[in-house]
Design a protein around this nucleic acid. Structure first.
Lengths: 164, 164
DNA sequence: TATTGTTATACTCTATAACTATA
DNA sequence: TATAGTTATAGAGTATAACAATA
């Protein structure tokens, strides 16, 4: 109890910027990302692999460059990621019949199973670090963040800030 | 009934990790960090310089290694940052009289002015991308994030996750 | 000539360890 | 011997540009 109060007090100390939305957001975001990486590491995956598997499972087979864009990755970075996934037997490269420059990237059954495992593990991890918030507060947080990102003038849609 | 609708939506849109707190948080955090860097760039500062100036302005003169810890920086990384700040005439290295291995790192008047400029510019930038949220909602967001970080079991204090 | 995927390269960031000068 | 700051180095990550095959 005393510790709780001290921690909360510490977060209120000092110049305003330490409790500014920007500082809190970027700090929390970095730590959330680290938790995510740590959660899926035992499955032998990194965040990029996860992102590609998710994109393929969600939007079906797609050319390599398109998936790279969707996962906010450069096409050159993508090569090694798909190399990994293919070597691990989770994804297949199939030359497109219509345009032989392209691949159709296909997630297979093992890939879907791996993704399902990862989703479960990540959900458990989130549930852990979201502990301080009640279900209603978590929902509130998700709503605020979604608007912050996607509403006009927000982080993803303000000026030239958009990446995708 | 709301739950039925949600389940239905989820079945149409695929995995809902894209609206999970973790994904939203790490995405928003990364973008907030980018906005921050972009906001202070015209002043010739990077985030690390800002962090050091802020630490020195807040906690007064301190040895270099101590400030490094405070800014979550390695002491070796810190060297170049202080080199910059000294070259720009914002901070001074003074050998400690008690222990001549140590410096006393001191922010000077120019440093304080630069920091004040930076704080103003950053506040304006935040005000811009926080546009989608009302003042009450911003306050709500800050509170949720602070608890997420500092409450027991949260991102900064769960298990061995703590860096500081 | 333009585009897909690939490779090579360079640049940033950071962490590690060795070194110096003090203690 | 231990510590503060420094330097050198190596690793990860990522972005850029050149390249081959195909359109």
């Amino acid at each position: 109890m005393t510790n709780d109060m001290e921690a909360l007090d510490r977060s209120r100390e000092g110049p305003d910027i330490l409790h500014s939305a920007g500082f809190l957001l970027s700090t929390a975001g970095r730590l959330a990302r680290e938790r995510f990486e740590r959660a899926i590491a035992p499955l032998g995956l990194r965040a990029r692999h996860f992102g590609v598997l998710l994109a393929l499972a969600t939007h079906g087979p797609a050319p390599q460059g398109e998936v790279a864009d969707e996962a906010w990755m450069d096409k050159s970075t993508m090569v090694a990621v798909v190399d990994d996934l293919e070597r691990w037997g989770l994804v297949e490269r199939r030359r497109s019949a219509q345009d032989r420059r392209m691949y159709e990237l296909v997630i297979n059954e093992r890939g879907r199973e791996k993704l399902a495992e990862a989703l479960e593990v990540v959900a458990r991890s989130e549930d852990e670090w979201l502990g301080p918030l009640s279900p209603e507060e978590r929902e509130l947080l998700r709503g605020l963040l979604a608007r912050l990102l996607y509403a006009p003038g927000g982080l993803l849609r303000g000026r030239e800030g958009g990446e995708e």
